[in-house]
């Protein structure tokens, strides 16, 4: 199972910092998302794309995570040599994370 099956995402940029939301498609996926999509998993998944830290914020009311990726945009949109200087495509990348503990999905 991929994160894309149970969550959606949007990317934003401020300076050289990218933020990526991970939003549960349904409440029943929320515990699994909180457990599986950690700072370490995201940092590993983005490997060579980011130079700085990854910080996760949890918003239980809206069953969402917000990841902040420091030094991740080649200097930021005003300077970067990248084709996607905003890092708009990162939301599609995070949704490719594989989920293994499907038994954590709330059945009721």
């Amino acid at each position: 199972m991929l994160l894309r099956d149970i969550a959606h995402s949007r990317t934003g940029d401020k300076g050289n910092i990218s933020n990526i939301s991970v939003i549960a498609k349904s409440e029943k996926y929320w515990p699994l998302i909180v457990k599986e999509i950690t700072e370490e998993v995201v940092a590993d998944h983005f490997e060579n794309l980011i130079l700085g830290d990854v910080v996760r914020f949890i918003l239980p009311n809206i069953q969402s995570l917000n990841f902040v990726l420091f030094q991740s945009l080649g200097g930021g949109v005003t300077q970067s040599l990248a084709l996607d200087a905003h890092g708009k495509c990162f939301s599609s990348v995070i949704l490719e994370i594989e989920i293994f503990n499907e038994d954590l999905i709330n059945k009721d």
């Binding site: 959606h8 995402s9 949007r10 934003g12 940029d13 401020k14 910092i17 933020n19 939301s21 939003i23 910080v55 914020f57 918003l59 809206i62 969402s64 917000n66 902040v68």
Partner: peptide, 8 residues
């Protein structure tokens, strides 16, 4: 999605 757009 919009609530979390470009926030830290």
């Amino acid at each position: 999605e919009q609530l979390l757009y470009e926030i830290h």
